[in-house]
Write a protein that binds this DNA or RNA. Sequence first.
DNA 1: GCCAACGTTGGC
DNA 2: GCCAACGTTGGC
Length: 136
Amino acid sequence: MNHWLVKSEPHKYSWDKFNEDGSTFWDGVRNYQARNNLRAMEKGDLVLFYHSNEGKEVVGIAKVVKEFYQDPTTEDPNWVVVDLAPLEKLKRAVTLEEIKKDSRLENIGLVKQGRLSVMQLKAEEFDRIVELGNGD
DNA sequence: GCCAACGTTGGC
DNA sequence: GCCAACGTTGGC
């Protein structure tokens, strides 16, 4: 099982909207590295949901419910989507600032490669963020 | 709104 | 196949 983090701008697609929908196909990825990550996702993998620009925080956990398939919003076979469903909202959103300050998270893709919108996390990094959000 | 980082494109 | 120009992302 792998762990991932995906970014969404809240005004475009927020965690709340995601929960209203119940599940969604994760479209709009137009970057090969991010695309490769989508392709590597397997059903049941856990995915952190991060709000970029507004908030800049990890707000919840989703899971992969359907593995990659052709992006329905384009004819271009280069691009794929996966289906995600919300699993759990963090008790408290974990901000980028906290992540940057945490020594266990200093090598996380979110900080190292700020522009990548879909990235893999180590299990420890995933667990640490969840711990920060649900801690005590 | 600015700008740095960085991926992509296209001319050669 | 190199690399400069360009476009996009996302933090500030």
